[in-house]
Structures are given as C-alpha cells and as structure tokens.
Amino acid sequence: MASKQVVGWQVGAKMPQQLVTSALQRAFWSQLPALGLLVHSDRGGQYCGKAYRQLLHDHQALRSQSSRGDCDDNA
C-alpha cells in the first residue's frame, strides 16, 4: 500500500552520497519498511554507491531506477 508520505529527509547545499543515505536511514528509523519496499530514484551517482545499495539490502528494500536518458520516467 502506497501512502506518498515523506518519512525521511535531509537538506544540504550539494547532494553527495552521504546526503541521500542519511535521508534513507532517517526513513528507516521513522518507519519500519514493509516487505517488498520499492525505493525509486534517478540514475545519479548518489544512488549507485556501495553505502546506499548496502542500506537498501540491509533493510530488504528493492532498488528501482529510471531508464537511462529518460527524464520523464522518474515522474
């Protein structure tokens, strides 16, 4: 069931991998992920790094990314 509720966020002047992993970790602390959780992102380097992928794996979340070169796919 999708709620479209924001459960984790982080703000910064730039968007390094640490920023997105912190936001995702906050979400996991705020609300335990449901089985089969799907986390969608674009193909930015922040979402391809080892720490981010490991965090998803540790919480049994599935990673979904937009198609290469298709900016509308993430909408």
Results as ranks from 00 to 15, higher is better:
Val20Ser: 11
Gln5Tyr: 05
Val39Thr: 05
Gln65Tyr: 01
Gln17Thr: 15
Val11Asn: 02
Tyr52Lys: 00
Ala75Tyr: 10
Gly45His: 04
Met15Gly: 00
Arg68Glu: 06
Phe28Glu: 00
Ala51Met: 06
Ala2Cys: 12
Pro33Cys: 05
Val7Glu: 03
Lys50Arg: 13
Trp29Gly: 02
Gly36Val: 05
Ala13Lys: 14
Pro16Thr: 07
Arg68His: 06
Gln60His: 15
Lys4Pro: 00
Thr21Phe: 03
Pro16His: 03
Val39Lys: 02
Gly45Gln: 04
Val7Thr: 10
Met15Tyr: 03
Gln65Ile: 11
Phe28Val: 15
Met1Glu: 10
Tyr47Arg: 02
Ser66Lys: 03
Cys71Ala: 14
Asp42Cys: 12
Ala34Pro: 14
Ala34Tyr: 04
Leu35Gln: 13
His59Trp: 13
Asp70Lys: 12
Arg26Glu: 14
Gly8Asn: 09
Ser30Pro: 00
Arg26Asn: 14
Ala61His: 02
Ser64Asn: 09
Asn74Gln: 08
Ala23Arg: 04
Gly45Tyr: 08
Ala13Cys: 03
Ser66Trp: 04
Ser3Trp: 08
Ser30Gln: 13
Ala13Met: 10
Ser66Asp: 07
Lys4Met: 07
Met15Ile: 06
Gly36Gln: 05
Pro33Val: 01
Gln54Met: 03
Ala27Val: 11
Gly45Asp: 00
Pro16Glu: 09
Gln5Leu: 14
Gln25Ala: 14
Gln54His: 12
Asn74Val: 13
Gly36Ile: 07
Pro16Phe: 00
Trp9Ile: 00
Trp29Arg: 12
Gln17Met: 12
Ser41His: 09
His59Glu: 04
Cys48His: 09
